[in-house]
Amino acid sequence: MTDTVTSGHRESAPRRVGFLGGVAALLLITSVVALAIGSVRVPLPDLFEALAGGGTELHRNIVWRNRLPRVLAAIAAGGGLAVAGAAMQTILRNPLGAPYTLGISQAAAFGAALSILLTGVGAGSSRGGLLATWLTPIAAFMAGMVSTGVILALVTYRRATPETMILTGVALGSLFQAGLTLLQYFASDTEVAAIVYWTFGDVGLVGWSRVGLMLAVVLVATAYFVRHGWDYDVLDAGTSTARSLGVNVESLRIRGMAIASLVTALIVSFVGIIGFVGLVAPHIVRMVIGGTERYLLPASVLVGATLLVVADTVARTVLTPVVLPVGILTSFIGAPLFISLVIEGRDYW
């Protein structure tokens, strides 16, 4: 009898660990490929040489100035959006939980547009003073946190249910979308262009300092969610059960939402709106290895990062020499992928 138990359970543990390892390996491989290909192909030996600080100046420039920050930004943004989405789905107990459904992305876009409108097109570009460089991201971040703040306030003071949170998020999202449209209506042509370009979502415009900041925040957030993975497992069994097992449900929800929103707002403020990664990555993980949060959270980071590295590489190379913003591509791929996940994998949730 014990054998049945043992095999029954142990079967899924190696599968999960294997999945984690497999996706990690895949992420490494796709990252190397992403560094190597593009308008200029860098052969693998030259690539490693350039990474080590040697090789030709051209290769060093391409790798260190252009592709490496780009790939790392894709890893941070994809991983961060995915872990935020996974955490939100768990906390809200809703498979639709994601940065976009909660209005955070739209709010950040509104904030960015507002800063562009108030300070001129120069804001957000890498030229100009420190303030100008950081103004758009800061405005986007603050607006994103407003959306989060409203939802968190509802949870804290009105004891809102997960359903209320999602509905509020949807309402806030369309409110900020309306605000964004209004701003665009009053903006000049160049400002509209800047706003629209910003909302495309692109990991190619991110400098090293921002990449570093994103990576650090995503890493800390992931560590937090992994550390509390078991609590989130228990939370999914329902509030009563979780509380009776000693979990402080309110604080777990509020902290989780705050961290997930912070990660989202930071990423959106740096790279613009990149849809569907936060929604699709956790669902892919759930389909393959099931919904255990202890594995779901770290696995979502890896899947999200891989998805965005692949998507960005395709966006860079599919129409060479045109470099598409990756946000367009994720929306194109994400929508049908999500629909097929929902239709074919309905039984997994």
Binding site: H9, V234, D236, A237, L245, G290, G291, W349
Partner: peptide
């Protein structure tokens, strides 16, 4: 508790394991 509804699936083993939290 009297009732319980899960949003996402969990195995029997994982569910019982929650009790060790």
């Amino acid at each position: 508790p009297q009732t319980e509804s899960r949003t996402f699936p969990a195995s029997v083993f994982e569910t019982v394991l929650q009790g060790r939290r």
